[in-house]
Computed example of a mutant assay.
Amino acid sequence: MSIDPSSIPNFGGKQPESRGSGGPQGPIVPDQDLVKQLLDQMELKYVVDEEGDLAAPWEQFRTYFMFRGEAEQQLYSVRTFYDRQHELDAKPQLLEAIDDWNRRTLWPKVYTHTHDDGSVRLIGEAQMLIGTGVALEHFVSSTVSWVRASIEFDKWLVETLGLQQEVDLEKPDDAGGDAGGADDDGPKPA
């Protein structure tokens, strides 16, 4: 199974050339190799963790591409673990913010996880039932949209909760300025 490069939205890098398509394809059951091909074409770095899950790391979060279940009940999940720790006292404010996000957007649906040490982190998730097959175009566009939405959520949270000062304090000093003309399209893969 091959992904038509012209079906992938451009993330600012070089747009791959289309190999042409012979029309719509029938349903496919996606797998990890297909996701790797998509991430390669999107020019995103990825690793396979010790549990065999595919992960794309960014500076402030990691997005996992996971397949769970058997046969017709197989589920494809894109789950983002945001690294920013929040204090337990901030949980009511976090819940209010993510409730607002969850009401206004389709994905990722975001929830909190409180660790044993009392720190709170956020997790975003989108899922698709793939066991009976899905259209390749639907799979590609959903995966790309979910990745972009995960990035957008992080930017939105920083703006909504006024975390920009915290983000600026975490950055190392840059005495030379930005001579490279880098754009501000959000977190970059690590």
Score class of each variant (00 low, 15 high):
Met1Asp: 08
Ser6Gly: 08
Pro9Tyr: 01
Pro9Asp: 12
Gln15Ser: 12
Gln15Val: 10
Arg19Tyr: 09
Ser21Phe: 12
Gly22Asp: 15
Ile28Asp: 07
Ile28Ser: 01
Val29Asp: 03
Asp33Ile: 04
Lys36Asp: 00
Asp40Asn: 15
Asp40Pro: 09
Asp40His: 12
Met42Thr: 00
Glu43Ser: 13
Leu44Ser: 03
Leu44Ile: 06
Val48Trp: 01
Gly52Pro: 02
Glu59Tyr: 13
Thr63Gly: 00
Met66Pro: 06
Glu72His: 02
Gln73Ser: 12
Gln74Arg: 13
Leu75Ala: 03
Tyr76Cys: 00
Phe81Lys: 04
Tyr82Thr: 06
Tyr82Ser: 05
His86Asp: 01
Ala90Gly: 12
Leu95Thr: 04
Thr105Trp: 12
Lys109Met: 01
Tyr111Arg: 12
His113Glu: 14
Ile123Gly: 01
Gly131Gln: 00
Thr132Arg: 14
Val134Ile: 13
Phe139Val: 01
Ser142Asn: 05
Thr143Lys: 01
Phe153Val: 03
Lys155Asp: 11
Leu163Thr: 04
Gln164Trp: 11
Gln164Ser: 14
Asp168Ser: 13
Asp168Gln: 10
Asp173Gln: 11
Ala175Gln: 14
Gly176Arg: 05
Ala179Asp: 09
Asp183Val: 10
Asp184Trp: 10
Asp185Glu: 13
Gly186Asp: 08
Pro189Ile: 03
